[in-house]
Design a protein around this nucleic acid. Structure first.
Lengths: 140, 140
DNA sequence: TTTGTAAATTAGAATTATTCTAATATATTT
DNA sequence: AAATATATTAGAATAATTCTAATTTACAAA
């Protein structure tokens, strides 16, 4: 339910030019949850038939660059994206072959705090902490 | 410093046939730490020039399947592997474009214990917990 | 409001990593 | 030592992503 005005402001704040292609791509990311680049292209094409794959890839790249979208780590060789940049975790559900959001704010804090004590990391600035679970759905 | 005898036993235990190609591929994985499939192919080729890419990909796949090698989640669209299957974390060092092992056994345990309390996960069996940090090296 | 310009988009070719296919060779079992 | 299921090979095919050069557009400044 985010409106174009809001998205426009977000883009401007990051110094990004606002184009119809970018607005639609960003909105599509929100609608699809954890889409692959391919899935984004397919859906964006439904909304702007004339758009090219290059534009979608460029847009995704620049949104990631600006910190407005996160690249999701994954075990296959495709690019996945997530417009939700709030701290959360991902569960790779191998039963249904999909990525599920897990919101566990405490866990995020616990990890961050624990990492501060880790000597191995003292020479590094950690920008992102990504927790991925791999699992399957139990029978009912 | 793992010898062929040991690797052979590991393979047999998992019901894998033991071939020279597989022995060399596994050993190469140990030597290279967190190689991409491509890097494995390159180094394996130095050791067995006649080996084909298909064999290396097949071997990597079957080692992962057997649980002897882990697929590393990553943000680019390449496959990375890790012969160390002990619980540990990965730091993606964007300064030097490499993956660094972080060993923090406490953290692993803390995460596992914390996840047990998470209601969202009660319908799932979590097989793997992968923690990836993204960061850069501090100036000295 | 128009204009200049840097940046974005387009079309389509090129590249790159990975997977597939069918024939041949080999590890293991008997 | 022979039988056979499985692994390997060579090379083609596929699929995802990136590149190139021409065109268009968003935005800043007049």
């Amino acid at each position: 339910m985010i409106d174009d005005k809001k998205i426009t402001d977000m883009f401007r704040e990051k110094g990004l030019r606002v184009t119809p292609q970018r607005l639609v791509t960003y909105r599509t990311l929100w609608d699809l949850r954890h889409p692959s680049a391919e899935e984004v292209i397919e859906e964006v094409r439904n909304r702007i038939p004339a758009i090219t794959v290059a534009t979608v890839y460029n847009t995704l790249e620049c949104l990631v660059e600006a910190g407005l979208v996160a690249k999701v780590f994954s075990p296959d060789n495709k690019m996945y994206f997530d417009a939700d940049t709030h701290p959360h975790q991902h569960l790779h559900d191998s039963t249904n072959h999909r990525i599920i959001d897990v919101y566990d704010e405490d866990l995020h804090t616990i990890i961050i705090e624990h990492l501060k004590k880790n000597k191995q990391l003292h020479n590094y600035t950690v920008q992102e902490v990504k927790l991925h679970l791999v699992g399957y759905q139990n029978q009912i």
